[in-house]
C-alpha cells in the first residue's frame, strides 16, 4: 500500500512539474530564418494549440496560424507558432500576435550576417505530436552567448512553493489536531471491542473445558 501511495504522489508531482515546465516562460537565443503562416486542422494535438485572435470567430474548426522558423546556436532548427492566448489558458494575455509576427519578420537574418534574438516562449516542440512552442516576445540580443536570468520564474516558483508549503503545514497541523484524535478514538473503540470478544471467548472456552473435568485444565 505504501508503494501505491508513493506512485500516486510521484505521478501527481510529475504532472505538476510538467505543467509548470510547459507553461512558464523560457528564452531561447536563436536566429530567425523566416516567418510564414499555415492552415492548421487541429487533431488529437488540439490541446497544445492556443486560441484564434481575440475578436475573431472562435467556433471555426481550422484556421491559419503564424509560424517563426529559427536556427539555434548549434545550427539545429526550432520552429515556433505565434498565436494569441487571449483571455484563456495559459494566462499570458497575449493579444499582439500580428505585431509580434511583424517584429519577428523584421529580425530575419542570414547565416553569414546573423542577428541573434531572444525568443520568449512557452510550450514544447514535439515532432510526433506536431506541436510547437508559442512565441510570446522577441528581443534583439548582443550575441549567441547572452545569458538571460529568468527573474519571473525565480519569483514565481519561490512564491508558488512557499504557498504549497504553507498550506501543507497547516493541513498537517489541522489533521494532527482534529482528525487523528477521531481515528485514535475509533481504533481505541475497536481495541475495546476486540478485548471484549476475546474475554468472552475465553470465558466460553473455560466453560467448555469444565465439561471435561478438572484434570483436563491446562
Amino acid at each position: 500500500m505504501v508503494y501505491v501511495k508513493w506512485i500516486f504522489v510521484s505521478l501527481f508531482w510529475l504532472f505538476v512539474l510538467a505543467t509548470l515546465h510547459y507553461t512558464l516562460p523560457q528564452n531561447d537565443i536563436v536566429r530567425i530564418a523566416d516567418t510564414y503562416e499555415k492552415r492548421i486542422d487541429f487533431g488529437e494535438n488540439s490541446i497544445f494549440w492556443a486560441a484564434p485572435d481575440v475578436g475573431n470567430d472562435t467556433t471555426t474548426v481550422n484556421r491559419d496560424v503564424f509560424f517563426i522558423q529559427t536556427i539555434q546556436q548549434n545550427d539545429r532548427p526550432l520552429v515556433y507558432r505565434n498565436e494569441d492566448t487571449g483571455w484563456g489558458w495559459p494566462p499570458y494575455f497575449k493579444f499582439d500576435t500580428s505585431n509580434l509576427q511583424a517584429e519577428a519578420t523584421d529580425f530575419k537574418s542570414t547565416k553569414e550576417a546573423a542577428q541573434w534574438v531572444a525568443v520568449r516562449h512557452y510550450g514544447w516542440r514535439n515532432e510526433f505530436l506536431s506541436i510547437f512552442p508559442n512565441a510570446v516576445g522577441v528581443k534583439k540580443v548582443e550575441g549567441p552567448d547572452v545569458r538571460i536570468i529568468p527573474w519571473f520564474n525565480i519569483v514565481f516558483l519561490t512564491v508558488f512553493f512557499a504557498i504549497v508549503w504553507a498550506i501543507w503545514v497547516r493541513w498537517k497541523r489541522f489533521r494532527a489536531a482534529r482528525i487523528d484524535p477521531l481515528l485514535d478514538d475509533a481504533s481505541d473503540a475497536w481495541d475495546r471491542v476486540e478485548a471484549g470478544t476475546s474475554e468472552r471467548r475465553s470465558r466460553l472456552s473455560r466453560w467448555f473445558r469444565s465439561w471435561r473435568g478438572p484434570d483436563s485444565r491446562n
Binding site: 494566462p91 499570458y92 494575455f93 497575449k94 493579444f95 499582439d96 505585431n99 510570446v136 516576445g137
Partner: peptide, 8 residues
Amino acid sequence: LLIYLTNF
C-alpha cells in the same frame, strides 16, 4: 500589468 508587459 501582465497585459501591458506582454503586448505594449
